[in-house]
Amino acid sequence: MPKVPPPVYVAVGLVAQHLLSRGRRPTMARSLAAGLVAAGSVYVAGSAARAFKHKDTTFNPLEPERATAVVTDGPFRYTRNPMYVGMAGLLTAHAVFRGGLLSFVPVAAFVAVIDRTQIPAEEQALSWGFGEAYESYRAATPRWLGTRR
């Protein structure tokens, strides 16, 4: 399992966005758009946390083997990784707020790192722990939004 908590990647991404967009001032339109994206992202991640709590299972991404249930309701109906979607959304909101195309590079880097390191390790642990129940969910629900894998 990767040993870096995903929120650390988000924090690094926020710092990188700040450095990549120095001197850019947010406009009212960018501020409003960023606020809407951020609110939606917090809602998605918060809904995922509530779904985990409702099933009384862990959502510690560094210990997926401690999961006691496969969560398939709430935002998990649309993506297997709503918390990562929420984190990517927060980075996207900050990129919109900061302005400039370079501000989106950390968003892409976050998605790539999480998609290639964190999620496969979690999926392996969940598949091992829940077998066909998880595999059926995995086959029916996209990893991100609108993608199948």
Rank of each mutant, 00 (worst) to 15 (best):
G89F: 00
H94C: 04
T147H: 08
G40Y: 03
A93V: 01
S136F: 08
H18L: 12
A88F: 07
W128G: 15
M83P: 00
L91S: 00
R66P: 08
V12E: 12
P61Y: 03
A11V: 09
A33N: 03
S103L: 02
A51I: 06
H54K: 15
P6Q: 06
V4C: 02
P5F: 05
P82H: 02
V71F: 05
G86E: 02
S47R: 08
E123R: 14
V15K: 04
G35H: 01
L14G: 06
F97V: 04
A49R: 08
F104Y: 09
G129W: 08
E132L: 11
R98L: 07
V96A: 08
L19K: 11
A49Y: 11
L14Y: 10
E63I: 13
V42D: 01
F76P: 04
R66Y: 09
V70I: 12
A112H: 13
T147A: 10
I119W: 04
R143P: 04
R24Y: 01
T58S: 11
A16N: 09
A51G: 05
T58P: 06
T92I: 01
L102K: 13
A69H: 07
F97W: 15
S127L: 13
N60G: 00
L91T: 00
T92F: 02
V44S: 03
G100P: 06
V96I: 15
A49Q: 12
E132P: 08
Y43A: 12
D115Q: 10
R50V: 13
E135P: 02
R50A: 14
R77S: 00
G129E: 11
T58Y: 10
R148P: 02
G40S: 04
P75V: 03
R149D: 12
R98W: 05
H94V: 05
L90Y: 00
A67C: 13
V42T: 02
A67L: 04
R148G: 09
R77K: 11
L101M: 12
S31I: 05
L19A: 12
E135W: 07
G89P: 02
A67S: 15
Y134L: 09
T92S: 10
A29I: 09
A49I: 15
L62W: 04
R98C: 11
R66T: 11
A45F: 07
V113R: 13
R149Q: 13
R50Y: 13
R25Q: 14
S127M: 13
R30E: 02
P120M: 05
A112N: 12
I114A: 06
S41G: 00
P7Q: 01
A139K: 09
S127P: 07
L126Q: 09
T147W: 07
G23F: 02
M28P: 14
L91P: 01
H18T: 12
E65N: 09
T92W: 00
T92A: 09
A11F: 08
K53A: 15
R138F: 10
I114F: 02
P7C: 03
F110T: 00
A48V: 01
S136E: 11
R24V: 09
G131M: 04
R66G: 08
Y134R: 05
N60P: 01
D115L: 01
G129L: 10
P7R: 06
V70G: 02
A140Y: 11
G35R: 03
P142Q: 05
T141F: 06
S103M: 04
G99A: 01
Y78Q: 00
